[in-house]
Design a protein around this nucleic acid. Sequence first.
DNA 1: CTCCATATTTAGTTAAGCCTAAATATTTAT
DNA 2: ATAAATATTTAGGCTTAACTAAATATGGAG
Lengths: 224, 224
Amino acid sequence: MRENLTHAIEDYLKAIYEIQTTHGKAGTNQLAALLEVTPASVTGMIKKLANTEPPLLVYEKHRGVTLTAEGEEIALEILRHHRLLELFLHQILGYSWDKVHEEADMLEHVISEEFEARIAEALGDPQRDPHGSPIPTIDLKLPPDSSRPLSSMKPGETGTVESVRDNDPDLLCFLEARGLVPQVDVHILQHSPFDDNLTIQVGGREEPIVLGSRVTSQVFIAQN
Amino acid sequence: MRENLTHAIEDYLKAIYEIQTTHGKAGTNQLAALLEVTPASVTGMIKKLANTEPPLLVYEKHRGVTLTAEGEEIALEILRHHRLLELFLHQILGYSWDKVHEEADMLEHVISEEFEARIAEALGDPQRDPHGSPIPTIDLKLPPDSSRPLSSMKPGETGTVESVRDNDPDLLCFLEARGLVPQVDVHILQHSPFDDNLTIQVGGREEPIVLGSRVTSQVFIAQN
DNA sequence: CTCCATATTTAGTTAAGCCTAAATATTTAT
DNA sequence: ATAAATATTTAGGCTTAACTAAATATGGAG
């Protein structure tokens, strides 16, 4: 079962894992949107993955799916590949942080365990990828995540950027230009209703900046 | 046309290139043997590749195929990927020389031009892979090759190992153990008829060794 | 000029992965 | 309780990308 995993299957498992960690359970339409396929296609794939031996996910009709231990293991394996690769590309090959995601998305399905082990070693068993997301350990554990989206913060609160979503290169360039990168402190100055814009102070910068929710929902903050 | 290249197509072009450089023309059965598919499959693929726009190869029925400039360009591109990757895996990630081939065979189809450029830079625009084979330059040129198989050498002749075939890990371990690696000098002591065994002296070693043609045909020597 | 090795054609097969559209079912929120 | 939102089924199809086995054809060596 570990050998006949197609790229598509790995992508499904990764997507389910991602949704699962924030919503507890992954729905068909949610998955369809994330994977950019139709809901019917998702139902089809889901049924297949629920009937492998061992099953990679538990499927309750109309109620979404949850990964089994086996499915989660594979998802975490791919996630480890992905995040190690991102850091490797950034740190060792000098990729800019907005370009690593795309390349890692291709390589993650292809590299061997030896490759994984060797880049992990070259990087000194790192904890976080260039966007601040934790890298699953070799035994596929992740630290508990207590960060909250920047969009949920209220005026007066402060925190430190823990991570940012890595999938949109343009957003990453935007964030970098404004100093909104992991480890930087932020201070919420005001929240404007209706449009949910936040005015915040970033790091040591003088000028506060105003960010819409398309941005603030993609940035995750650890409380001080 | 450069985008819809499958792994299989790239492997065909690589195989054709390889056969072409030694035999001038690649025959259907030769290709079938090298790629481990049936001749019928080869004919099918060949017809497809002859009818792309632009054509990747010239196909004369019953007479074998030759790559067009476009096909050769792609073959060399993949070959460059392969050999750069081999060196990269060996030099930067510490792979042993017998393990690089397999991993490079997977990665060569997947890496981007940026990845290629960055490892080339990290390696200082290298000329040769770990097995001594030349790496096509960025504009896809290869130096003329004047090496001859060790198996063709006569007693009394001397030379320097230029390269060894990279596809058999066991052979590579065997060769390494005997010091038969690129840059090492060899001196042919005797040739025994019927079995074509060669007795040779390797590098600074005292003890001569005896090698069968399964080995000597895989080692290529540059004349001094 | 005929035979043999080589190559080609023919006629499927397999597999993955996706799609639509219409009908149906289920859950949840008002 | 019913509508709206969500999910599933059904049924059929499409495309790409390979593969194989068996029958047939070709060309070159002698």
